[in-house]
């Protein structure tokens, strides 16, 4: 690890920092970064603001703040447009899927990281397929496999598909993680008479918690936001669409222009779908950055 970072370097040479040139430079930097921050944040704030307006206000005074906060937009989006149902559907799918993804990936990653056995390399290469091959190549056959097994339009079907497609990435991340854990712990426990299962569940799995948290966040975002797979596998007829997940429901709303033109309700729907991932991100942004950079820096 580098002992001195770029910003510390600058702190040392900041004695002469108050020259005109450096003030101009500073102003330039803040200007550019500020403009981009505005470009990024403003549309979201605009959507948030608009979601509290009436349709009248959206069309005739798009720039002004809402005169009164119309919470009814959210109520309509939640009930009439059935976003509440889709929200629950998404939870029903993502919670077990996340749990299974982490459990099965850590089991496989543990074995692949710590034991020598025949076929280990072949297996590792096969898991690479899921990371490199484009999803669209598998799309048509996946549809028919799911159909043959009677899993179309079912929660458990989509859960199993999510888990399967999350395995590769999660396993590779966790293999690297398990490799950093000391072997001696397991060896000592074996001498004390612990079974192999105890060693995994009592010693290594708890130690892998930071890696599991990182993968939990990444998979939560990926699975919560997933669109292509449910779009193909949750195809209940459009009148009922009882198994839709949020991203499908939102697209359906937009495509149908929310039964006529309920713009305010559609904006409210966008906010409802946007909020959970933003909350997760605000809570866990440190882990997300660490998880990203663990792989990227000198990777």
């Amino acid at each position: 690890m580098a002992s001195v970072t770029t910003s510390q370097k600058a702190a040392e040479s900041s004695d002469n920092a108050l020259s005109i040139g450096s003030i101009v430079l500073k102003a330039f930097i803040y200007l550019i970064l500020g403009v981009w921050a505005l470009i990024v944040v403003f549309p979201m704030l605009w959507a948030l603001m608009t979601s509290f307006k009436t349709d009248q206000e959206i069309f005739f005074s798009p720039w002004s703040l809402p005169t009164t906060l119309v919470f009814d937009n959210f109520v309509r989006a939640w009930t009439t447009a059935r976003l509440g149902e889709y929200f629950v559907n998404t939870l029903i799918i993502v919670i077990p899927s996340l749990f299974l993804t982490l459990l099965l990936s850590s089991m496989a990653a543990y074995v692949l990281a710590r034991f020598e056995f025949r076929g280990r390399n072949l297996l590792t290469y096969l898991f690479l397929v899921g990371m490199i091959f484009p999803l669209f190549l598998a799309l048509v056959p996946l549809y028919f496999v799911t159909q043959k097994l009677g899993l179309l339009d079912t929660y458990h079907g989509l859960i199993l598909v999510y888990v399967s497609f999350s395995l590769s990435f999660t396993i590779f991340f966790l293999i690297n993680f398990f490799r950093t854990l000391p072997k001696e712990l397991g060896e000592a426990a074996t001498i004390d008479g612990a079974s192999q299962y105890d060693i995994f569940f009592r010693i290594y799995l708890p130690l892998a918690k930071p890696g599991l948290i990182t993968m939990g966040i990444f998979n939560f975002l990926g699975q919560w936001n997933q669109y292509i797979l449910p779009n193909m596998l949750m195809i209940t007829n459009e009148d009922k669409n009882t198994h839709y997940v949020l991203s499908q429901g939102l697209y359906y709303l937009q495509a149908k222009q929310f039964y006529g033109s309920d713009w305010s309700g559609l904006f409210a729907a966008v906010v409802i779908v946007m909020i959970p991932t933003l909350v997760v991100y605000l809570i866990f942004n440190d882990q997300i950055e660490q998880g990203m950079t663990a792989g990227a820096v000198k990777g």
């Binding site: 900041s14 500073k26 979201m44 936001n225 991203s247 697209y251 779908v273 946007m274 991932t277 933003l278």
Partner: peptide
């Protein structure tokens, strides 16, 4: 330079759209 003040704010703001579903972003 010394690094940027409010660097946490800028990083979080810039990263925001990435955690949103592509569908939400496209509707927005």
């Amino acid at each position: 330079g010394k690094g940027v003040a409010f660097s946490r704010f800028f990083r979080v703001a810039f990263f925001f759209p990435q955690v949103m579903s592509v569908v939400v972003v496209a509707v927005l």
